[in-house]
C-alpha cells in the first residue's frame, strides 16, 4: 500500500513538473512579445529610431482601429485572404493532378523531366509581369501568382512520393490484373496521402509570397497593395499595419492547416 502511494506521488510530481515547464515557456513568450512592443514604442518616442520610418506600436494600433472602423481595412484583408486561399488550393490541387498524370504515363514523365527541373529552379515571381499581361490586371493574375509559386514544387514532391510507394503493393494488385489507374486509386494515392498533407503546410507559406508579390505588381486592393501604397506616400505606419495583419493572417492559416493535417492523419 505504501509503495503504491509513493509511486502516485512520483507521478504527481512528474505531471506538475510538465505543467510548470509549460507555464514557464509561455511566460517568457509573453514577456518577449510585450517587451518587443514596449522597446519599439520607447525607441520611437525618444528618437532612437526614426519614427517616420519605423512608426510605433501605438500609431499602428490607432491606424488599424480607425481603418477597421471605416471598413476599408476589412476589405483589403478579405481580398488578400481570398486570393491567398484560392491560390493555395489551386496550386496544391493542380500540382497533385500533374503528378498523377506523370505517374500514370511514365513516358510523359520522362519527357517532362528537364522542364520540371528548369521550372522548379526558376524564381516563379519573375513570371509576374508575363502573367499579368496574359491574364489582365486583376484578381485572376494575383491568384495565378499565388498558385504558380507552389504548383511545381507540389508536383515534384508528390510525384516523388508516388514513385516511392513499395512496388510490392502494385505486385499484389497486378496479380489481380489491375489497370494502372486502379493501382493508382487503390494503392499509390492512399499511400501518398501523408506526403500530400505535408505539402499543404509548405504551400500555405508559398501562396502568401505569390499573392503579396502579385499585389505589389498590380492591384488596387489588398494588404500587398497597402504596403506599396504606404511606401509610395511615405506612410510607414500603414506599411507596418499591413505587415502586422499579414503576420496574423498567415499564422492563423498555418495553424488551421496544421489542425487539418492532424485530423487527416488521425483519420488515416
Amino acid at each position: 500500500m505504501g509503495a503504491k502511494k509513493h509511486e502516485l506521488k512520483l507521478f504527481k510530481a512528474y505531471q506538475q513538473n510538465i505543467i510548470r515547464e509549460r507555464k514557464w515557456t509561455f511566460c517568457w513568450q509573453i514577456i518577449l512579445f510585450i517587451s518587443f512592443f514596449i522597446l519599439w514604442e520607447l525607441s520611437s518616442r525618444f528618437y532612437w529610431i526614426d519614427p517616420l520610418l519605423f512608426s510605433s506600436p501605438l500609431k499602428v494600433m490607432t491606424l488599424l482601429i480607425e481603418k477597421f472602423k471605416d471598413g476599408s481595412m476589412i476589405v483589403h484583408t478579405q481580398v488578400t485572404l481570398f486570393e491567398t486561399i484560392l491560390g493555395f488550393i489551386i496550386g496544391t490541387i493542380l500540382g497533385i493532378i500533374i503528378a498523377t498524370f506523370l505517374w500514370l504515363f511514365p513516358r510523359f514523365a520522362k519527357i517532362m523531366d528537364p522542364y520540371l527541373v528548369i521550372l522548379n529552379a526558376m524564381p516563379k515571381v519573375a513570371l509576374g509581369p508575363i502573367i499579368i499581361v496574359a491574364l489582365g490586371p486583376g484578381y485572376t493574375s494575383i491568384i495565378a501568382m499565388g498558385a504558380i509559386v507552389s504548383i511545381i514544387i507540389t508536383t515534384i514532391v508528390v510525384y516523388t512520393g508516388f514513385k516511392e510507394v513499395d512496388p510490392n503493393y502494385l505486385k499484389v494488385l497486378q496479380s489481380f490484373r489491375a489497370t494502372r489507374w486502379t493501382c493508382f486509386k487503390e494503392a499509390i494515392f492512399p499511400a501518398t496521402l501523408p506526403v500530400m498533407i505535408s505539402t499543404l503546410k509548405v504551400n500555405v507559406g508559398l501562396a502568401w509570397v505569390g499573392v503579396i508579390v502579385g499585389e505589389f505588381l498590380v492591384s488596387k486592393e489588398g494588404l500587398g497593395y497597402l504596403i506599396v501604397y504606404g511606401f509610395q506616400v511615405f506612410d510607414f505606419t500603414l506599411v507596418m499595419s499591413s505587415l502586422v495583419l499579414i503576420a496574423i493572417c498567415a499564422a492563423v492559416m498555418y495553424k488551421m492547416v496544421e489542425k487539418l493535417e492532424n485530423m487527416l492523419i488521425i483519420k488515416n
Partner: peptide, 21 residues
C-alpha cells in the same frame, strides 16, 4: 510479406482482388 493495405479494413483488404475485377 502480407502487403495488406494499412488504410483498408480487413474485409476490404480481402475483397480488393474482387474489387479490381
Amino acid at each position: 510479406q502480407d502487403y495488406l493495405f494499412p488504410w483498408k479494413r480487413i474485409i476490404d483488404n480481402v475483397l480488393i482482388g474482387l474489387k479490381v475485377q
